[in-house]
């Protein structure tokens, strides 16, 4: 247990540092993914199986989608020219040191409960009831807000809107698409 924890802790930090040391967007993104996976395994160690596996699942998906955007938008995608991932160096160093100090102080200053109520048998069930029971309204609002953000982003980013597809009066029977989809439209 302790060995796995230390491997994950050191691995997560080392992979996190690697994100800013490598000079290729693909390597930076997958170093970040490695860091997240180490963090996910650390969550597994405290027997929050569902959350740990979910962290790994979501992060793999997210990083693969992110690498597409990183390569698209960032300079020097393939690492053929020198580049740096570090911006606003002094400011970010200050913020990072400050956050670390606050969190580390919290570890030692907070009077953590010991003993207390026993662990629930099934943390996954507890999580589900927590999210879908008393916090239902907050989660529904959150879900709607996230979904609206996705739709708005796609609408703003898309090259062709419905007027391009269905004509200025939206009266075309079949959309005019450069590539036909699978439904024969």
């Amino acid at each position: 247990m302790a060995v796995v924890f230390w491997v994950c802790a050191v691995g997560a930090v080392a992979a996190g540092i690697a994100v800013f040391r490598v000079d290729s967007m693909a390597r930076a993104t997958f170093a970040l993914l490695a860091s997240f996976v180490f963090a996910g395994v650390a969550v597994l160690l405290v027997e929050l199986t569902y959350l740990g596996v979910l962290v790994i699942l979501m992060m793999v998906m997210e990083m693969v989608v992110m690498v597409v955007f990183m390569v698209m938008y960032m300079m020097n995608p393939a690492g053929l020219m020198p580049m740096t991932m570090v911006h606003n160096q002094k400011g970010s160093l200050g913020i990072a040191a400050g956050v670390f100090a606050v969190l580390a102080a919290g570890v030692y200053l907070i009077d953590w409960p010991d003993g207390g109520p026993p662990r629930p048998d099934d943390p996954t069930m507890q999580l589900g009831e927590g999210l879908m029971g008393p916090k239902m309204l907050a989660m529904i609002t959150l879900g709607l807000a996230l979904f609206a953000t996705i739709v708005v982003t796609v609408v703003l980013a898309t090259h062709r809107g419905r007027y391009d597809r269905y004509g200025d009066a939206l009266d075309r029977a079949t959309p005019d698409d450069p590539v036909r989809g699978g439904l024969g439209r």
Binding site: F30, T49, V53, L54, I56, L57, V60, M61, V64, T124
Partner: peptide, 24 residues
């Protein structure tokens, strides 16, 4: 595992990363 279905899903999604890397 108590979350076997999620585990299976998490592992097979590694193919996304693997095939993209093989292409890159």
């Amino acid at each position: 595992l108590s979350v076997g279905v999620v585990w299976f899903n998490a592992m097979e999604i590694m193919a996304w990363a693997a095939v993209w890397l093989a292409g890159w």
